[in-house]
Each structure stands twice: as structure tokens, then as C-alpha cells.
Simulated assay, not measured.
Amino acid sequence: MGKRTNTARWTGKHWRIDVQQNGKRKSFYSSRPGRTGQREANAKADAWLDDGIAARAPRVADAGALWLREVEQTTCTTNYRPTESRWRNWIVPAIGTRRVNQLTDQDLQEIINTAYAAGRSRKVLKLLAADLRAFCKYCRKARLSAYVPEELKIPAGARYKGKTILQPSDLVKLFNVDTTTYRGKTVEDEYINAYRFQVLTGLRPGEVIGLDWADIHGSMVNVSRSVNVEGEQTRGKNENAVRSFQLSALACHVLDEQREAAGCLGSVFRITNEQHYYKRWKTYCAANGLTPCSLYELRHTFVSVVKTLPAGEVKSLVGHSADMDTFGIYAHTLTGDAAHTAQAVNGVFLQVLKNA
């Protein structure tokens, strides 16, 4: 069976789409203007391709179980679990009994609209749309359907969930108070340098946990691994997570203090797991009156502090992709950029601490 990976195009006279199935190529047309004609041509192509599919295609719930098994086998647990949860809570109740070769864009759009009406954030809606597209792609690869979702939209009113960041007064406390509470007593916080380093670099919590002294070369740091909440070591969240950058003078000072306190072999911060790390961070915030925020929001704090720097410089530091509204895909690092960025980051933090 062929599968449609393209869409109809306007030739100046009509819409045309070329598809192929079992070595046979065929073209379909529509003379109707606008998107109505495009959809009509695509529908004709889909109908022809569907002839190569079994008359009784499986139900979405059954095909979804096979797709989720593949997701579980090919990705980490922290990706599979939320994917399975979204599938179980939003997709199966809506279209679980439908045949995979009978799905329409409106069927999928209504799932996104329902989640939006229930108050889910823009991020959740985008993840749902990505799940639906990935499932449909699996069905095409498995010869279960030729359907290609084309017009899934995130409602314009959807908003990202608000984040809490450390304010300047919080940063002054963080960089001047080393103590926390433990069993009712005031003690040195074993992870104080990890908190500070995370704020100064924008590293993800898992990247801080996975950082080894072997990754540090003078003032350069190579981020090549991450440890997730399940204790699994990965290459990071995505392909952009593997990166190298030059540390600011403040970040280098924090590493010097950590080296003096814990040595320079193995794990830099010696964090046992993310749950323990987060628990100690919450205790530190409560003991010293800092604005409560999550470990991941320390990354948001970093970006907020350095937001006056060029977007491309920030992108390279935090490992964001081009579609994160920073650098385009054709931006490249020039000689001296790393040192310039490190100096700029250092200056911004010094100014914030001075003015607080």
C-alpha cells in the first residue's frame, strides 16, 4: 500500500496531488478554488490509497496500544508515561472505538478543543496534537490507514502555564546564605553549589545531576548526559541538549568551591536523585524565605535574568532548538563568541546582585 506524505498543490488552474501505491502512480484533481478544493483532491487520493488497506481496519484503541508499545520500547520512561497518560485520558475516550481509517481532522480537532475547554495549557494542547500526528504516522507505516492530519490547530486563546522565578532579593539570599535546616537544626546545605550553578548556567535539573568532573575543562563545560526522575541516564531532552559553552566567572567560582568541598572525581554535585535534590531545595527556600519555585524554574530564572542578551547567545547556552524563537537554523558560532557570552552573563548577574 502507498501512503500519502504530501498534499495537493494549486497549479494555477486546479488542485493536483500525485500519489503512488504498489508501483502505480496516479494523479487526482479538483477545480474548486480555495482550501475546499485542496481537501477534495486529497480526499480522492486518500480514497484510492485506502483500497490497499484491509476492509476492517483496527479500532483506534487497539492500534494505539501497539503504538504505545513502540513508544515505550524506543523512548525513555519520562517520555512514555505522560504520553500514555494523555492517550488514556483524552484520546481513547473520544475516538477509541473509531476505525483508524475513518478518522478525520475534525475528530482530532475536537480532542484538542475539549482539552482547551477543560483549561489545559497551550503546552499540553501542543503535546496532544503531536501525539495524534505521531499515532497517525504509525498507522500509515503499519499499513493500517493512509490518513494524514493536516489542519490541527491550537486555539488562539490557549496560554502557557505561568512560571515562578527567583526575584533579585531571592538571588541575593541564594548567593550569600549557605545554610538550611535539617531535623530542626541549622546546617550547611550540601547542595548549595548545585542551586547556584543551576541558576548561573540555566542547566536542567537532570543535567546538573548528570554532570561529571570529566565534563569540565577549565572554564568550558560539556553537557552530554542527563539523569531523569526515574534514575535513567540519557543523552538529554533532545538533540540540542548536547552542547558546550564557556562558564561565567561566577559559575567558575561556584565550581571552585564545590571542588574544594567535595573533590574533583566522579559526579560534580554528588546528588543521589532528583526527588532528594528537589526536597532539599524546597527546604532551603522555606528556611531562608525564598520565593517557592521548582528546580526547573531555576532554568527560567536564568533566562529571565539574561533576557537582555542576544537570543542566539541564550539559545546556545540552554540548548534550545531554532523553533524556540531564538536563533534560526543558519546561525553559527564565531571565534570568540563563547568568551564574549561568558563575560556578558557574568556582568548581568553581578549587576543584578549589586542593585538588589
Rank of each mutant, 00 (worst) to 15 (best):
G96C: 09
Y330V: 11
Y284T: 03
R81T: 11
V60N: 06
E230K: 13
G202T: 09
G347I: 06
Y29D: 00
A47H: 02
R196A: 08
G52E: 10
G231L: 07
G266C: 08
R122H: 07
D46M: 02
F269L: 08
L152I: 03
A41V: 06
L125A: 07
L203P: 04
N288A: 07
F175H: 14
G347D: 15
Q167S: 06
Y160P: 00
S31V: 11
K185F: 05
Y116L: 10
L295T: 03
E72N: 15
G119K: 01
G202D: 08
I91Q: 10
F175W: 15
D105A: 05
V199D: 04
A117K: 14
T335Y: 13
R280G: 05
H300D: 06
F175C: 13
H300T: 04
G206H: 03
Q20N: 11
A241C: 08
V268Q: 00
V242M: 08
G266K: 02
V208Q: 09
N193W: 13
T272K: 13
G119Q: 04
E260W: 02
D50S: 11
L309Y: 07
H217F: 01
E190W: 00
L295V: 06
A134S: 15
W15K: 10
Y278H: 10
V227F: 05
L68D: 01
S145R: 07
R39Y: 13
R120I: 00
K315H: 14
P33E: 03
D212L: 01
Y116V: 03
T83D: 00
T181S: 06
L68C: 01
G12V: 11
A61I: 15
Q258A: 07
A241S: 15
R259K: 12
G2L: 12
N79S: 14
V221G: 04
T83A: 02
K237R: 11
K282P: 01
R59K: 13
V229G: 02
I53H: 07
I154M: 01
S244P: 01
A322P: 02
T75E: 09
T78H: 03
Q233L: 12
Q198R: 10
V305R: 08
I192F: 08
Y138A: 12
P93H: 08
R183W: 00
L174I: 14
L211N: 09
A43E: 12
G64Y: 09
V345L: 03
N6C: 15
A249Q: 12
V208C: 14
K126Q: 12
C264M: 09
V303W: 07
G157T: 06
G210Q: 06
E84S: 13
G34N: 14
G2C: 09
F197S: 14
L317Y: 12
L350Y: 09
S30N: 06
V223F: 05
W10N: 13
